[in-house]
Amino acid sequence: MRIRMIIAMTGAAGLFLTGTANAYPIEDPALTENALYSSGELAATKCAEPPIRNNNRTLVRRYIAGVAKCLDASWGAHFRAAELPFGKPRLQVLNKAPARYCGEKVDRKEDSQLYYCSRSRTMMMQIGRDWLSDVEDLSLLHATGVLYATHLGRLTGIEKAYQDAPYANNNELNEQTRRTNLQDDCLSGVFIRSVWSSLGRKTGDWNELLRVLRKSGDAKGQPRVYGKGTSRAAWTKLGYTTGDPASCNTWTATPAKVA
């Protein structure tokens, strides 16, 4: 089983998805020429952010559920207009992750985590103290968008193609995982652009998100599966700037772009 990890804010998350990948470098058109890239810009939609406060778990739960509904509406309309298959993911917001999720052991040392189970099309967010203590910036909105992007990969065949891609060594596997995770960052940026005018946010909020992302990324001594913080910020900013999933094609990007 190939295990893919994603990161959001201060928590890390495991995406448990099965499979085995086309010659390296990537040549599979399901990745490099996916129909998602020719679907056009994501149309502007309204998304009023639910109220949220630090250390208020009830409001955080409602916030995530509200953002998930916005994601359903925005991406659902986009997929239907592009004649792409669409189905809403399930959502679970938990205080504590189970010992096993989607058939795999969970790292319960993490305070806050994101998981996506491809088999059941379920997004799971474990909300720990680290997320609760600082929730008023755009990080939680972005994190939910990143998790939703993994579901879009499931719908479009990108995730399966990634799972099936061959690799000669761990460095190649890690680079493929970074391409997938950075694509999710970018698609979250596309979504944020589509709802920005209705959020009532200021430019400073956006700049703060980019600052937080630049400080994230792969931890020293850990497998390089997320990308540098600068790469995460760059792909998120690219998605926001263009508002177009076509800009999120990490599979044809140079290795330096997905470092």
Rank of each mutant, 00 (worst) to 15 (best):
I7F: 10
I7W: 07
I7R: 02
M9E: 13
A12G: 14
G14I: 09
L15E: 03
F16A: 08
L17K: 12
N22D: 15
A23W: 07
A23Q: 06
Y24N: 14
Y24E: 13
Y24R: 13
Y24S: 11
I26M: 01
E27I: 09
E27M: 00
E27T: 15
D28T: 14
D28S: 10
P29F: 08
L31K: 08
N34E: 07
N34R: 05
A35F: 12
L36H: 04
Y37W: 02
Y37R: 13
G40A: 08
E41Y: 02
E41C: 11
L42A: 05
L42F: 06
A43N: 09
A43K: 10
A43I: 05
K46P: 06
K46R: 15
P50V: 13
P50E: 15
P51T: 05
I52H: 05
R53S: 11
R53E: 15
N56W: 01
R57M: 14
R57W: 05
L59Y: 07
R61S: 05
G66L: 01
G66A: 04
K69A: 00
K69P: 07
K69R: 12
C70R: 04
L71Y: 03
W75D: 00
W75R: 03
W75Y: 02
A77N: 13
H78F: 01
H78W: 02
F79S: 03
R80F: 07
R80V: 00
R80K: 13
R80S: 06
A81Q: 14
A82W: 03
A82H: 03
L84G: 07
F86Q: 07
F86R: 04
G87F: 12
K88N: 02
K88W: 09
P89L: 01
P89W: 10
R90Y: 04
L91C: 11
Q92W: 12
V93K: 14
V93C: 03
N95A: 06
N95Y: 10
A97R: 01
A97I: 02
A97D: 05
P98F: 10
A99M: 09
R100T: 10
Y101L: 09
G103T: 11
E104A: 04
E104F: 06
V106P: 03
V106T: 11
D107F: 00
K109A: 14
E110A: 04
E110R: 08
D111P: 02
D111H: 00
S112W: 11
S112K: 13
S112R: 06
L114H: 09
Y116T: 01
Y116S: 03
S118I: 08
S118K: 12
R119I: 02
S120C: 10
T122Y: 07
T122R: 12
M123C: 07
M123V: 00
M124Y: 09
M124E: 10
I127H: 05
I127L: 07
G128K: 11
W131I: 00
W131Q: 05
W131R: 04
D134I: 03
V135L: 09
V135M: 14
E136T: 02
E136A: 08
E136F: 08
D137T: 02
L138V: 01
S139I: 05
S139A: 15
L140S: 02
L140D: 08
H142K: 11
A143D: 15
A143T: 14
A143G: 11
T144R: 09
G145K: 07
V146M: 01
V146C: 03
L147G: 00
L147F: 01
Y148G: 01
Y148A: 03
T150F: 04
H151I: 03
